[in-house]
Simulated assay, not measured.
Amino acid sequence: MGRRERDRAPPVNFPARPRSALGPSGGGSRRGTGQLPRRSLFIGVGLLPLVVAGCGTRGAEDAPVTEDEDLLQEHGFADADAQEIIDQLEALPVAERPQNLIASVTPTSLQLSDDAGREAELPLPPDQFYLSVAPFVEATHECAFHSLTTCRGELRSREISVSVVDNSSGEILEDGTHTTHDNGFVGFWLPRGITADLTCALEDVTGTASISTQAEDDLTCLTSLQLT
């Protein structure tokens, strides 16, 4: 497996956000649109002092899928597949996330490593793509591939309305209310091979981003979706 990196960056100031009139309860809206870059990004810019992030930036490589049984056993993943591990780690309170484990999601696999130098790589379902989303109002960080143990978003444990609409077919893939996890993210398992519009709304602010699940360098960590 390739390298995993975590950056730290000093906080920066974001411009005051405009107010708009939309929320889950209805009304008109102004939509902030975030365009997703297709190549890997560096990380760690634009954080408030209490928002600390560390995300993967390595490319999706054609490495063989491997399993270190000791690593999986020690962290309680011996009988779990990639989807089960991702869902479990994403939902953990931040204080309970393992400090000695890095778990990164690429478009094709879950990559695990620990401080003992052990590594494992588990394939994602062939027909599904995992996208973790951290909508924000004032502070964010840049990220390419989601780190389940170190990524942090601004809006922790907040109820947001989410819709995902397939650009080709117009099919509504997601439409409902979700509560962001303790890390400020909410994850979605989406069909592979699509482009779509993802919209999030929180109270009187909303934002929309274009997403893709087609390529091996598509992002699994969406942090550019600002709510305005």
Results as ranks from 00 to 15, higher is better:
Glu121Asp: 07
Ala120Asn: 00
Phe136Asn: 04
Asp115Lys: 14
Pro98Asn: 05
Pro135Gly: 08
Pro125Ala: 09
Ser104Thr: 13
Glu138Ala: 13
Ala139Met: 05
Pro107Met: 00
Leu131Val: 12
Ile102Trp: 13
Asn100His: 12
Tyr130Arg: 15
His146Trp: 15
Phe145Ala: 15
Ile102Met: 09
Pro107Gly: 00
Pro126Ala: 11
Cys143Val: 14
Pro123Arg: 07
Ser104Lys: 12
Glu142Val: 11
Val137Pro: 04
Ala116Gln: 15
Phe129Val: 03
Ala139Gly: 05
Val133Cys: 05
Pro135Met: 07
Leu110Asp: 07
Glu138Trp: 06
Val105Phe: 01
Ala116His: 08
Glu142His: 13
Ala120Val: 01
Asn100Val: 02
Glu119Leu: 15
Ala116Asp: 13
Pro135Phe: 06
Leu110Cys: 03
Phe136Ser: 08
Leu131Asp: 10
Ser147Val: 01
Phe136Arg: 12
Gln99Val: 12
Pro126Trp: 01
Ala116Val: 05
Phe129His: 04
Cys143Thr: 12
Pro98Lys: 10
Val105Glu: 05
Ala103Met: 12
Pro135His: 10
Ala139Arg: 11
Leu124Val: 14
Ser113Trp: 11
Pro98Glu: 03
Ala120Ile: 00
Ala116Phe: 01
His146Asp: 09
Leu122Gln: 02
Asp115Ser: 10
Gln128Pro: 02
Ala144His: 03
Thr140Trp: 03
Pro135Leu: 10
Val137Cys: 06
Thr106Ile: 03
Glu142Gly: 09
Glu138Phe: 14
Pro135Arg: 08
His141Pro: 03
Ala139Ile: 06
Thr140Met: 06
Leu110Lys: 07
Ala144Ser: 04
Leu101Trp: 13
Glu119Thr: 12
His141Ile: 13
Phe129Met: 03
Pro123Thr: 04
Ala134Lys: 14
Ser109Leu: 00
Gln99Asn: 04
Cys143Pro: 09
Leu110Ser: 01
Ala103Cys: 12
Pro125Thr: 12
Val133Arg: 09
Ile102Pro: 00
Pro98Tyr: 05
Ser104Phe: 12
Ser132Val: 02
Asn100Met: 05
Glu119Trp: 15
Thr108Arg: 02
Phe129Pro: 03
Val105Leu: 04
Pro135Val: 06
Glu121Cys: 05
Phe136Cys: 06
Ser113Tyr: 06
Ala116Gly: 08
Cys143Ser: 15
Gln99Phe: 10
Thr140Tyr: 08
Thr140Phe: 07
Leu110Glu: 02
Pro107Arg: 01
Pro107Ala: 02
Leu112His: 10
Gln99Glu: 09
Arg118Gly: 03
Gln99Arg: 09
